[in-house]
Design a binder for these strands. Structure first.
Lengths: 191, 191
DNA sequence: ACTATTTGGTATCGACTCGATACTTTAAAA
DNA sequence: TTTTAAAGTATCGAGTCGATACCAAATAGT
């Protein structure tokens, strides 16, 4: 049981990330959490770009998220579009300004620098280890995975070579299956 | 260059850790940062238990840290003791109440659960990968290491089998070299 | 030895996070 | 059609955090 070692290292990495993210965001008047929201919106699919999904992803209350979103909208970094079929839900679209800001701040500069001096095979090892840790963490605690359609049990490959989501009963474009989804479930839910 | 992959995974782990830490601390009326301060104080040596050191470790301003410390002191989780030789500095000692609280909340429950289902060799791999990433990150950005005397260039093994710190010119007890130090520097500073 | 500067820390302010509670609107269920 | 649930917003209070100003002890400069 190395839970202590693992925890300590993740905590330290987390602290460093947070400090760096705060500094990176400060240049544009943004808080860490605001950057995280934008980042999430840049990697989620069209079923997962709602305030509710952000709430689940960040593990906060809807009130808290609502405030952050209003702030981001006020800064012109995203816009809310009411859903066509359910007028209660809105979809959050990153504005060009938001996108360019994201591109400048993520990934965090310290990670870029670190990867510059890390040999490629080491980087691969690290990614694999992080992936294992993250997946186990989610699985062991029955948390939502928020992973790509790619690995989702609802994702079906059609005869024409395209993709289809069996949950929302809609076809998916090729670039969409690389995005993360709030409904994601692994194929082999071993629990 | 997998900086994106590495960043995304660390960010996600960091979010999960934060949410969990918030929940764990909430049971005792503590914020994540307050737990982190207590945690730090539980693993640092006697030269690194000052407000200044906490400030450097957490990358915040001294004013911010001062407030958090006052709050923790007010809750009876730690006490300040003025330094014997320099009356400007104070040393922060965790109270029994603080220690028992720490023991109940760290490591975070989700990490303990994850380690229960992770095979031992996988855990070892993960710790190694995290260690590599963390060290590279610190080195690539010339940040303070805050590591154990164990690996420090100032740490000298005496003829009698004990340890001696060549920076503060003081002997170190065996259990002390497992603690982290604000003055830590690796032996081979390759930069 | 005596002033000047630096250093560790506190005090106070304002912008922001975050949870809790109450509320509104729309959709779904009974 | 009435009831209930769900997605979001509004508002409040405790806390984080940086910035600035401040204080007292230690160190430097002369």
């Amino acid at each position: 049981m190395k839970s202590n070692d693992i925890y300590n290292h993740v905590e330290r990495l987390s602290e460093l990330l947070r400090v760096d993210s705060r500094q990176a965001g400060a240049a544009y008047g943004l808080q860490p959490i605001q950057l995280e929201v934008l980042h999430y919106l840049s990697i989620c699919n069209r079923y997962s770009d709602t305030p509710k999904a952000v709430t689940e992803y960040l593990g906060q209350t809807k009130g808290t998220v609502s405030q952050t979103l209003m702030l981001l909208e006020g800064k012109g970094l995203l816009s809310k579009i009411t859903d066509e079929y359910d007028k209660r839900v809105s979809h959050l679209k990153i504005s060009p300004k938001g996108a360019s800001l994201l591109q400048k701040t993520i990934p965090s500069p310290i990670f870029i620098k670190a990867c510059e001096i890390l040999p490629d095979n080491k980087q691969t090892e690290i990614v694999a280890a992080l992936k294992t840790l993250l997946l186990t963490l989610l699985q062991a605690n029955s948390m939502k995975t928020f992973d790509m359609c790619h690995t989702c049990r609802y994702n079906i490959k059609t005869e024409e070579g395209g993709y289809f989501c069996d949950l929302v009963k809609q076809p998916l474009a090729d670039n969409e299956i690389e995005l993360i989804c709030r409904e994601h479930e692994f194929k082999n839910t071993g629990s």
